[in-house]
Amino acid sequence: MILNKEEQKVYKKEIKDVAPKTKHISTLLRAFFTGGTICCIGQGVNQVLGILLPSLTEEDRGGYTTLLMIFFTGILTAFGVYDHIGNFGGAGSIIPITGFANSIVSQAMEHKREGIIFGICSNMFAIAGPVIVMGITASVVVGIVYLFL
């Protein structure tokens, strides 16, 4: 039995009445503080690098910081800590580079049993892939626009 469109709309409204609501304010606050903390740690790593390796240019330091943040996330994901951070912080932990790293490492761990090539390699970017495609597409579009400006 399939309902028609009108009846489907009525049913969706009925669901809204009984469904528990997302607690927007607490979710937003948690995301804000989690994201902020991750960025502060990144800034801290950047400054420590500046003290330890004074010969690095500012641009290089940025690159090294990103690498280190990805490395830390990989470790935290492997030890099963990052999913708790993500569950608490939501978008606050997904949007920084650490969320991107987590999506790749978690997929790789999940598909370890299917072997290196068909398991890890082919599934690693299943979640992160769209982000990379979007990034590359956007850069091409912006590049073409820039060419004509």
């Binding site: 978690s106 761990m109 999940e110």
Partner: peptide
């Protein structure tokens, strides 16, 4: 989880439903 949703270690929030 793996079959219908996301990897176990992915840091994402579950919806209230």
């Amino acid at each position: 989880e793996r079959q219908y949703r996301y990897p176990l270690e992915l840091g994402c929030q579950r919806t209230p439903l």
